[in-house]
Design a binder for these strands. Structure first.
Length: 111
DNA sequence: ACACTGACCACTG
DNA sequence: CCAGTGGCCAGTG
């Protein structure tokens, strides 16, 4: 996997996050075999602004905090999108994050 | 070419 | 337990 593939894979995995579920930067990085490149996942999200079909709002940090909210059109946009999908957000943090967490390393595992 | 910055995370002492 | 730190690497000045 080369570098540009990494970015593309980040987008692909993000698109696979089911409606009403969320995942984390680290989980995506880990799934792609680069768990220490979670920062790059965030960077990829930044680049995903142009691609409108990437649900960047379903990607938060490992604590379920909406760290990327200020990169949306408005700071409340991310929360609105999540709550529209049934995910509760209080104080910029996802309530019962464990319940909604979608781990690609498990869900997309090949058997 | 160099230094610094991130929408982060796991490890260490 | 918590603060510090190293790793990752594309972009920017």
């Amino acid at each position: 996997m080369n570098k540009s593939d990494f970015f593309q894979n980040v987008f692909d995995v993000t698109k696979l996050v089911p409606h009403g579920r969320v995942t984390s930067y680290g989980a995506i990085a880990h799934y792609l075999g680069a768990k220490q490149s979670s920062r790059m996942v965030g960077w990829a999200m930044n680049a995903s602004h142009k691609l409108k079909d990437v649900p960047a709002h379903r990607v938060v940090n490992r604590n379920g905090i909406l760290t990327g909210k200020f990169h949306f059109e408005t700071p409340d946009r991310m929360k609105e999108l999540l709550e529209k999908e049934g995910v509760k957000v209080v104080n910029d943090q996802i309530v019962e994050f464990d319940k909604y967490f979608w781990n690609p390393s498990i869900e997309l595992e090949f058997h």
